[in-house]
Design a protein around this nucleic acid. Structure first.
Length: 754
RNA sequence: GCGCGAUUAGCUCAGUUGGUAGAGCAGCUCAUUUACACUGAGACGGUCGGGAGUUCAAGUCUCUCAUCGCGCACCA
């Protein structure tokens, strides 16, 4: 049934709100206005030139990624903060960017090339591969960026940054050089986490431990060796150089210091019995075989015992390098072969099933093979002189370590973490932190700014490597004979600079001076170590400023039963589908309401549908109010009844509550309050009770109520705009000019907080 | 092993400094050619995981136990 058309109502109000009809055009309108860029807001007098800055950097999604609900939640939260602060008159900047995601992107392209051309990266060569990866990334980034816009994100695209572009590269080179000159970056040969699948080293944080069943074998190297040892990796025992026991263990006292020459599984080995207090006498036989080249702990034990012989028996492809029956076998096959040999030789005493946590590479799933390698590291425990400090509790010139710097930043309130409990998680991580391995054996990424040259004299360089000179700078040396380090940097090294590099650092740009430190960093709690901590390290060290004043950590989006969304479970809700079906506004609100900071968010399609109904509710409220007010001249301030005044004062209370909750980052409460007010107060009560007044004979009362309804409508649209920008702006665009203080709701003034 | 979080209505979750238990969804009963069925009104529904303590008063603070989830470390 067609409702009776009212004369002056814009026609589009005569049918239900259809998001798909408005959203894309509206985004274009916002973008074309230029007001995503704070400079334009100042130029047009919308924002005061000396207004307080408010800045956020977007956690850059992978160039090759597609938008998922996690991104959608992040964009919704950040856009709410940004729109709210922009409407509040702050110089508001939200910087977009994408991340090269080194290993992930390179291996994706490698796979495609292998499939289509049957070629490996080595067939193509470094230069050609990089060209291909660049092309792929360039093409692929359009997808994620367009999807980002679909959510309504009011990002300043004129400041778009890519982790591998020229400006960001300069920042990376500069930071490396600074740390190198301070002795905080060093080259060291020791056990690294080698990923045989990805063919690169990875940092401790990129490891995930997987629980697996494995076997613990108890045996002797040979029948004439007096000590029985236990291991879950018998194949590594061909690389043993010692057997360690606890210094107080009476069973083995007589052997300490003795050396035995043996043949183990066709391999001649020489083991010395050493005492080390790290050995647990209660575990196994209380004695362990020390394999310095293939275990971090054993490497350290060898150090303590002064053992220099550290034969490597496993290579980068997780294959045995020894001769004899194990030659060339993969580690798993070698394990079987060793066990079979032990059985035949009657040396195996026990075999028990144990559960073990196996270290795997997060990106590739490959089982980590600890190997000794010469790599670049950041020393987190070395004292250095803090060149400049604006960090609370630290003065310029203080002697600190990077660890201390990271702790002080949060402890002294330079950076506040929200929710609070993650501070403890942060401190706990830093306390356990070891030196950070930053070099990677992949090609896509920032190449290490270090060059080597073989020198004729064979003199030692500062690292003590004979015959090689070393040069570190942000640009290549000009004279001949230098060769650049072939490794690239851990992607988190450049990500750690993100707040600074997006604002122009190392140049002292106006942007950097105005917007750094940034106001809020909003991200998932799962990357607090990878990213948040590294940004604090990089920024405080390089600039003496904290990278951000606040950290807001959101939870993970899960399905309605609280399960992780995954393709294999078939429970993935695609944000783009939801935007098409229910609109970006509904999708946004569904990710905000019911989602408290730091906790995971359960999401169902039904929930999103519910908020689509809400968008339509707003539509109909607007239609009702316009129907009854559009033809009336409301320029004079009418005399309000007691009830009218009460409505206005209730409205102000809601404005204050919503504002306060946003200020406290309680977006879920703010959204819920606005939602509840608009639906159950404004629509259900105020509109209903206004009907008789609007159709009644008392002209003065009618005029007053019309005024009140207009106030309620415009204020509600403003309150809701950060949460549901599209529907509120669509209505706003169709309000008569006399009701608006700005043509665009996006830059209208936030209602006054009492 | 160390630490963190959760446990409140059928489901998903709120509950700010201790002061008589809340929302959304689902279900139930009515109403309705209405600004809006993408609707409204109403009722039902909880010894707040168990136990102990502090207090005039505990969902909230303390202790303890249980179950679930997560993070970090890790022993060969």
């Amino acid at each position: 049934m067609e409702p009776t058309p009212k004369p002056n109502i814009p026609e589009l109000f005569l049918k239900p709100y259809n998001p798909a009809e408005h959203e894309d055009a509206l985004y274009e309108k916002w973008n074309n206005s230029g007001y995503f860029n704070p400079d334009n807001c100042i130029k047009d007098g919308i924002t005061a030139p000396d207004a307080e800055p408010f800045s956020i950097v977007l956690p850059p999604p992978n160039v090759t990624g597609v938008l998922h609900m996690g991104h959608a939640a992040m964009l919704a939260i950040e856009d709410i903060l940004v729109r709210y602060n922009r409407m509040n008159g702050k110089r508001t900047l939200w910087i977009p960017g994408t991340d090269s995601a080194a290993i992930a992107t390179q291996s994706k392209v490698e796979k495609i090339i292998l499939k289509e051309e049957k070629k490996s990266r080595h067939d193509l060569g470094r230069e050609e591969l990089l060209k291909r990866v660049d092309t792929f990334a360039e093409e692929s980034k359009k997808t994620i960026l367009n999807q980002t816009k679909k959510m309504g994100s009011s990002l300043d695209w004129s400041r778009y940054a890519f982790t591998l572009d020229e400006k960001r590269n300069k920042a990376v080179m500069t930071a490396f050089k600074n740390m190198y000159d301070d002795g905080l970056i060093y080259r060291g040969n020791r056990i690294v986490n080698w990923d045989p699948k990805g063919q690169t080293t990875i940092s401790d944080d990129e490891i995930v431990h997987e629980e697996r069943q494995s076997k613990l074998y108890t045996f002797k190297y040979s029948s004439d060796f007096p000590i029985t040892i236990s291991t879950s990796r018998p194949e590594t025992k061909v690389g043993d150089t010692a057997v360690a026991v606890h210094p107080d263990d009476e069973r083995y006292q007589q052997y300490i210091g003795q050396t035995f020459s043996l043949t183990f599984c066709d391999v001649p080995i020489e083991v010395i019995v050493i005492a080390d207090k790290e050995v647990d006498p209660e575990f196994g036989t209380g004695a362990l075989g020390v394999t310095p080249a293939h275990s971090k702990i054993d490497w350290d034990m060898a150090d303590r015992a002064g053992i220099t012989r550290r034969p490597q028996v496993i290579n980068e492809y997780a294959k045995m390098t020894v001769s004899g029956r194990l030659a060339g076998l993969k580690v798993n096959d070698a394990r079987e072969a060793v066990v079979e040999w032990l059985r035949n030789e009657n040396l195996l005493e026990k075999e028990e099933v144990i559960t073990q946590n196996v270290a795997t590479a997060e990106r590739t799933g490959g089982i980590i093979e600890p190997l000794p390698k010469l790599q670049w590291w950041i020393n987190v425990n070395k004292k250095f002189n803090l060149k400049h400090s604006e960090i609370p509790g630290l003065k310029t010139g203080d002697e600190v370590t990077l660890k201390e710097l990271m702790i002080a930043t949060v402890e002294n309130g330079g950076t506040d973490i929200f929710p609070e409990r993650f501070k403890r998680v942060y401190f706990n991580w830093i306390t356990n932190l070891n030196d950070w391995c930053i070099s990677r054996q992949i090609w896509y990424g920032h190449r290490i700014p270090v060059w080597y040259k073989v020198n004729a004299e064979g003199r030692e360089n500062p690292l003590g490597e004979k015959g090689e000179e070393l040069y570190c700078d942000t640009i290549a040396p000009t004279d001949d004979g230098w060769e650049q380090d072939s490794d690239t940097l851990d992607t988190w090294f450049s990500s750690g600079l993100w707040t600074m590099s997006t604002l122009g650092w190392p140049e002292q740009t106006d942007d950097f001076k105005t917007y750094h430190p940034t106001t809020v960093l909003e991200t998932g709690y799962d990357i607090i170590f990878f990213w948040v901590a590294r940004m604090i390290l990089m920024s405080t060290y390089n600039t003496g400023q904290v990278p951000f004043k606040n950290v807001y950590l959101h939870g993970l989006v899960r399905d309605e039963k609280g399960k992780k969304m995954s393709k294999s479970l078939g429970n993935v809700i695609d944000p783009l589908d939801m935007i098409t079906k229910y609109g970006a506004d509904a999708t946004r609100l569904s990710l905000i309401i019911g989602s408290s900071p730091g906790n995971d968010v359960p999401l169902s399609e039904n929930k999103i549908k519910g908020y689509k109904n809400f968008a339509n509710k707003i539509w109909n409220i607007s239609r009702f109010v316009l129907t009854h007010t559009i033809d009336t001249n409301l320029s004079t301030s009418p005399t309000l009844s007691a009830r009218d005044q009460e409505i206005i004062s209730d409205l102000k209370i809601v404005v204050t509550e919503v504002s306060n909750e946003i200020d406290r980052f309680n977006l879920y409460l703010a959204g819920e309050k606005a939602y509840h007010y608009i639906w159950h107060e404004l629509a259900d009560k105020i509109l209903e009770e206004s009907k008789p007044i609007l159709t009644g004979a008392d002209a003065a009362a009618k005029l007053a109520r019309q005024y009140v309804l207009n106030e309620c409508l415009t204020t509600s649209l403003k309150l809701l705009h950060p949460f549901m920008p599209f529907v509120t702006e669509t209505v706003w665009q169709n309000l008569p000019a006399k009701m608006k203080d700005q043509d665009l709701l996006m830059v209208a003034k936030w209602p006054k907080v009492e």
